[in-house]
Design a protein around this nucleic acid. Structure first.
Lengths: 192, 192
DNA sequence: TCTCCCATGTAATATGTTACATGATTGT
DNA sequence: ACAATCATGTAACATATTACATGGGAGA
């Protein structure tokens, strides 16, 4: 879910620059952005932290480090900052993005007309949820999110809005007779 | 690059409904949509076709099937159509999308201001290329692409345009002094 | 025949998810 | 002390990429 070249490692390092965090913290923080970057599973997150620790890019900071279990907070080291610095100077690879929805769109010819409509509508409700989530994050700012992350939030909102707009106009165009349902759902969204 | 639950298999099946194709054909066709769905590598494509063949979801059709090497065209079977049908009735899982660009955006606080600007501008040029590619596909339609795929094309264009718009306004807002460069690049894009 | 490109195949490697197991902490 | 949740760890599995190897056909 996190995708190849970039890797979880750099994302983790980048988040640890802002403040020390545990694996659990990272997971929680990233969950809000899951639509945009994907939320790593613990099965990949914890091993990644372990590796970073062994490589000396992060250190363990915390009250109860001698215990095998228990909360562990990680803190980026100078070496880690250097690695992050190097990475940020490399050009970003353009990576594929939307996958399953567009896949189905490409195969739209195989759908029945009602099937296509259902597909578009399902996507619409998913995107609406994502937009609502991002909106909510913007509201509860200050607490856990650094102000710099507003940019990512803003970006996500802009794209979600554009997609909703496309979905609406497309559904309207293809299925004019059913446009009533779309309108109803729209009014629900705008309350969020 | 293709992502979990959905799998290459269904995409391949879906494309084979339209007409028989070889692995190479599939790869070529998908390359144009690579920004939207990801383009599978041969290392995953050929084994996938092999598996589908063994499962009886596709058959080999072609002139020289007795050869070990050489062009092989695959044709979907009734069983394959059934599998595809079942799949298309399942709800789509919302999958993460933009990854590396947004990752860097989230980490924007670690960037220097010029670094951030470079990052945004790089993204802009990538998206501009993608949009140009899609535009071109729309022009050379009829040849290799089924008319149903226009929908995916249209979707991709709408999103790319929205993203370019956001990038432009954001860059303008954050770096007003440098907005001249953006304008220049804009005029280049519109020629495509 | 030689060369270049088309087309397929495969092994090594990387990375991620799922499902499970287990230890800590907190509230009642 | 008990339950619920927090938090970490790990093995089995799935899937993709990369780099390489190989065969076939068209033209010089």
């Amino acid at each position: 879910m996190m995708g190849g070249k970039i890797g979880l490692r750099h994302l983790v390092l980048g988040l640890l620059v802002q403040r020390p965090m545990s694996g659990y913290d990272i997971k929680r923080l990233l969950k809000g952005f899951s639509w945009l970057v994907g939320s790593p599973s613990f099965g990949s997150l914890y091993p990644a932290l372990r590796t970073l620790l062994e490589e000396g890019l992060v250190t363990e900071e915390g009250v109860s480090c001698q215990n095998k279990r228990g909360r562990r907070s990680y803190c980026i080291t100078e070496a880690g900052k250097q690695v992050l610095q190097d990475w940020s100077h490399q050009p970003a690879v353009p990576d594929a993005s939307l996958k399953s929805f567009v896949m189905r769109l490409i195969l739209a010819g195989n759908f029945s007309r009602p099937g296509l409509f259902a597909h578009l509508q399902q996507r619409r409700s998913q995107v609406a949820v994502h937009r609502a989530t991002l909106n909510q994050m913007g509201g509860t700012l200050d607490k856990e999110m650094e102000p710099e992350q507003r940019l990512a939030l803003d970006y996500g909102l802009a794209l979600a809005t554009a997609e909703l707009s496309w979905l609406d106009s497309t559904m309207k165009r293809l299925f004019q007779s059913l446009s009533v349902e779309v309108r109803q759902e729209e009014s629900v969204d705008s309350k969020v």
